[in-house]
Simulated assay, not measured.
Amino acid sequence: MSTKPQPNHDREAKLVELHEHLVASVETLVTGDEWKRALEFAARFCTRSFNNTLLIWWQHEAAYRQGRVPNPMPTYVAGFKQWQALGRRVIAGQRGYMIFAPLTARFATSAPMDANSWRRLDRNERPRAGEIVRPRMVGVRPAYVWDFSQTDGRPLPELPRPSLLHGEAPPGLWDGLAAIVRDESFSLSMVTDVSELRGANGVTDFRARAVIVRDDMDASARVKTLAHELAHIRMHGPESDASSHRGIGEVEAESVALMIGAAHGMDTSDYTIPYVSSWANSVQGKTPTEVIQETGERVRRTAAAILDQLPTTQGAGGDPPGLDRREHIQRMSATAVTASSERQPEQLEARSL
């Protein structure tokens, strides 16, 4: 008799439900205002993937409308056991927000430079002598997280929050961004004559490896412009796809700048984000939904990488203060976790995509 495991139909149904929720939330991002709202939200949860951020946003809004949570925006989200480790517990009756979590498997090889030499190990299989073993993602499964407002218990430590006056820039942000620009081997200069930039606030010249920013703007505008130009450096070199879709490149760069500003408490109400629908429909071979999801994840990854390099006071990225995400990821990578139903939240702990 065959012992091959049967498909988990409950899990597959949940994945289909997640996909439908994700498509519905992405399809709302058809105007600049909605795109801006999504990015401002994602900036507060930059440790999560763009897809999972949208899922959390969508489900929390629904919970707020139904009166199940007190605030329209989530504060910190974490898994069931993560909240327990912080001395808090999920309040009875509170439903978690379903997100995608990775399924990983172990792969072994004696020739790691040969991409075709890796083989997947069975659950209890040991590697051969001389082989190295690495985990790889092989799929996704549903997992659950809960907002801080859905828990009670030990208070969380207060994190410092930047407080800005209108027109000011967060302390150290200009210097931090400038250092990263120079680390990319680009020079940075300021100009007072707007005509030198043909009306633009900033310019990135890949041939000359130079960034130029207007000097006659408020400090916050200069910082935002520098973040925009750094995003071009990281994402839009001469060989990038954005070079043939300038609209996408400009939306991506401005979106990264918005996320970096929002992570530092900057008021982004005056930022100009082009309408998403105008460029999302212009990419051949992909639906607008696919373009938005891919663009959102590229923006999030770029902004998160820049934020990691900055020595500035920022938000917590959506993780509760005191949570060691790296330790949690290492523990979950080393432990096989079986997803179950929402009625068994202790089995649903996982790092998110």
Rank of each mutant, 00 (worst) to 15 (best):
S189A: 15
A263N: 02
D308C: 09
S25W: 05
L177A: 02
L39F: 02
M73W: 10
H21T: 13
T268N: 02
E20K: 15
A263P: 01
R301C: 08
A85V: 00
E34A: 12
V283G: 03
S185F: 10
M137D: 03
Q84T: 08
V299C: 02
D270L: 10
A316E: 01
L159Y: 07
T338P: 00
A178W: 03
S277D: 15
D10V: 11
I233W: 01
R154A: 13
Q94G: 04
L258G: 05
G247N: 09
T287G: 12
M235K: 11
R325K: 11
A219Q: 07
V77G: 01
P274K: 10
P5I: 07
A208Q: 12
I56V: 13
V283A: 01
S244D: 11
E61Y: 09
T302G: 07
R136C: 12
E61W: 12
T104Q: 04
D10Y: 10
E61N: 14
H60C: 05
G167I: 08
L22S: 02
E297R: 13
F148S: 12
P72M: 05
F50S: 05
H264G: 08
F41R: 05
A221S: 14
V138G: 04
N124P: 00
D122H: 13
M332H: 09
I248H: 09
A62R: 15
R128D: 10
G153S: 04
R65T: 15
G79V: 00
L197Q: 06
R44V: 09
R89L: 00
A336I: 10
Q309K: 12
F100D: 00
R106P: 00
G176P: 04
E297G: 11
F41Y: 02
A280D: 00
V223M: 12
D10P: 00
M332E: 08
G93F: 08
N51E: 14
E158H: 14
A334R: 12
G67H: 02
A111R: 15
Q6M: 13
N124H: 13
Q309C: 10
P135Y: 13
H264I: 05
E196C: 12
F186A: 01
S340D: 12
E342M: 14
E40A: 08
Q84K: 14
A280R: 04
A336Y: 11
A13M: 12
A208E: 10
G296N: 01
L22T: 03
A339Y: 00
H166Y: 13
E346W: 08
L121T: 01
S149Y: 15
A78S: 06
S187W: 06
F41C: 03
G167N: 07
L230D: 02
W146Y: 07
M266T: 01
R161L: 15
A221M: 11
I212F: 07
T287D: 06
Y76P: 01
T287H: 08
L173C: 09
A78G: 04
A219C: 07
T47E: 11
G202V: 03
P170V: 06
H236V: 04
V181W: 02
T312A: 06
R182I: 09
L121F: 05
S244C: 11
Q84C: 11
M332T: 11
A263M: 04
V77I: 09
R300W: 07
A221P: 02
